[in-house]
Simulated scan of single mutants.
Amino acid sequence: MTLFKGVPKDPTCANIKWMKSNRAPFYQHGYKLAADKLCSDFELLHVSENDSLIFPIIFLHRHYIELPTKDIIYKLRHLLSINEINWDTHKTRAKA
């Protein structure tokens, strides 16, 4: 990318350029790791903090489950040659 050409790389920043082929396992691991870190001291927190964190924790776990599920659906689509599903939306039902 020429936008940042000549700008020195900050070694403290994330470098995701190496994940070119299959990013799914890294995304899955990231969501799970973040959820686990939020849960690690959950019982030590005040009730109001627990109430505030429960939704981000559920969100992260849901995405941890959703990503491999969508990957399975995508692979089955190719394996079974199912092409009539519109994969550009969240509605994955086959056309009647």
Rank of each mutant, 00 (worst) to 15 (best):
L53Y: 06
P68V: 05
F26R: 12
L45C: 04
I73V: 07
H29Q: 15
H90P: 00
F55Q: 13
R62K: 14
E84M: 08
L45S: 07
N15T: 11
I73F: 09
K32Y: 03
I73N: 06
N22Q: 10
F55E: 11
I16A: 01
D51E: 10
C13I: 09
P68S: 01
L38P: 02
K37E: 03
L67N: 00
S48I: 13
S40L: 15
F59L: 11
H63R: 12
C39Y: 00
W87R: 08
S40E: 15
F59D: 09
W87C: 04
P25T: 14
L45P: 00
R62H: 13
S81M: 05
G6C: 04
A34L: 11
V47A: 15
R77L: 12
A14G: 06
R93L: 14
T89P: 02
D71W: 05
L45Q: 07
G30H: 13
I54F: 00
T89D: 08
P68N: 00
H46Y: 15
L33T: 05
F26I: 15
W87M: 08
N86H: 02
L44V: 06
P8A: 12
M1C: 09
S40A: 15
E66Y: 07
Y74E: 08
Y31W: 10
T89L: 02
K75I: 07
A24K: 10
W18V: 15
D10N: 15
T89W: 01
T2Q: 06
E43F: 02
I16N: 03
Q28Y: 06
N86Q: 01
S40F: 13
A24R: 12
E43C: 08
E66L: 10
N15P: 01
A14K: 10
D36K: 14
Q28S: 02
K20F: 09
H90R: 07
R62N: 13
L45I: 02
E49Y: 15
K32C: 00
D88Q: 06
K5Q: 13
S40T: 09
K9V: 09
G6K: 03
K75F: 09
Y64M: 08
L3E: 08
P56L: 02
D41R: 11
W18S: 12
I82H: 01
M1Q: 08
A96N: 11
D10K: 03
P56D: 01
L44K: 15
F4H: 11
T69Q: 12
D36V: 04
K75H: 09
I85N: 03
D71R: 05
Y74M: 06
F55V: 08
S81I: 05
T92E: 10
H61K: 15
L60Y: 03
A96C: 09
K95N: 10
G6Q: 02
Y27C: 05
F4M: 08
K32A: 06
D10R: 05
S81R: 13
F55Y: 09
I65K: 10
H29I: 08
M19F: 14
A24G: 07
P56Q: 04
N50E: 04
I58W: 04
E49W: 13
K5H: 13
